[in-house]
Amino acid sequence: MIEYTQKVGVLIRCLLCFTLVLPVDVRGQTRPVSTSASDVASLEGNVVDADTRQPIPGATVTARTESGNVSGEQIVPADGAFHFSLDPKQTYVLVTKASGYQPTEERLAFTSSYTNRLYGKLIRLKRADASTPASQPTASRQENAPRPTAPTQPAGIPPATNASAVAVRNTPPPLVAKTGETTQLRAIQFVQSKPDLLPEAQPALDQLLAFMQTNPSVEIELSGHTDNQGDFDKNMALSKERVDVVKKFLVKNGIKARRISTKGYGPTRPIASNSSEETRRLNRRVEMTVLKQ
């Protein structure tokens, strides 16, 4: 009888140990460490001469957080292109330097922590001796001299450009975006307080057009954003007018209107403070979201 009681006691203790240990094991298995694609976003752009728009090979681009931590540093190749993988939840300072040029610092922020990509970032460096223009072959100077002026068509829509003109403007690399991704089209810039495109926006427009042409089934949403300066209702209307101008450019060049929807958010979705001009210009932007691939 004593032996039986001892065996029962051992069995009970074993069951208690199993009961205490098992939940820990189970809980440990139900909490895997996961990573999300939204934890990393790409920043792509080019470093060019502010006057000639030609690439500056050998320029150094450094991306650091506002706290001073360096997230990446690159020496750009012959085409002036750079690419960083950054945390979209952070705000960065881009520091660009090149021999013979004035260094620049610029704040940069992604639209939100869900932004996947920011492309077409153009960093323009001025020569240290502004009175000495960059030396180029005569043919190149002739091509650059008659750079297209501001659009004369209604609603600020610029004319389509030929291949040689795009090459001179240093067109950014081909646009790639997946369904659900939001991409900042920061290079698409407008005249202040107007829905008229600046000539410098043309390369990014051509890039967007090429993306729509090479992906005939893609449907996108273009969203316009402003800072908080001025009348709220006017800013809402202006943001919608600006993306409508981009849509008209695409439609004019053969893209079906049904593939493009537009929305104006005005100042309601800022990505930076509106306390200074430096940060307000980050809020003035056009974004593209791929709705259907």
Rank of each mutant, 00 (worst) to 15 (best):
E219V: 04
D79W: 04
T149F: 05
N228S: 14
G68P: 01
T132E: 12
N215H: 12
P133E: 11
V33I: 15
T62C: 08
I2E: 12
N170L: 02
P158M: 03
T35H: 15
A63P: 04
T226G: 00
P32D: 02
V218S: 07
L291R: 13
L118E: 11
Q54Y: 09
G230Q: 12
A237R: 09
P103K: 01
L185T: 02
G224R: 02
N46F: 09
T268R: 10
T62F: 08
I271N: 00
E143G: 14
V26C: 08
H83R: 13
A145C: 11
N253K: 07
V33W: 13
E277M: 08
R281Y: 08
Y101L: 06
R13K: 13
S38R: 13
E73S: 15
V191R: 13
M212N: 10
Y4C: 06
S239L: 02
R280E: 05
Q213F: 00
S71K: 10
S71A: 15
K194V: 09
T182D: 00
A134R: 09
E73Q: 15
R258V: 03
S276C: 07
I56R: 01
V166C: 14
L185D: 03
I75A: 05
P216S: 05
E73Y: 04
A130H: 11
G58H: 05
T161K: 12
Q189P: 00
A201K: 04
S164H: 09
Q189H: 04
V245H: 08
R31S: 11
K256I: 01
E181L: 05
A134K: 08
A41F: 05
I12V: 15
T152H: 06
P203N: 08
D196Y: 11
E3N: 07
T5P: 00
Q29C: 12
P146E: 10
R269C: 00
H83K: 09
Y119K: 00
T5Q: 13
A130S: 14
Q293I: 02
Q192V: 09
F211H: 01
G68K: 06
N69Q: 10
R64V: 13
L208D: 03
S38C: 09
R107K: 12
V290R: 12
M1S: 15
T152E: 12
K240Q: 15
D206F: 03
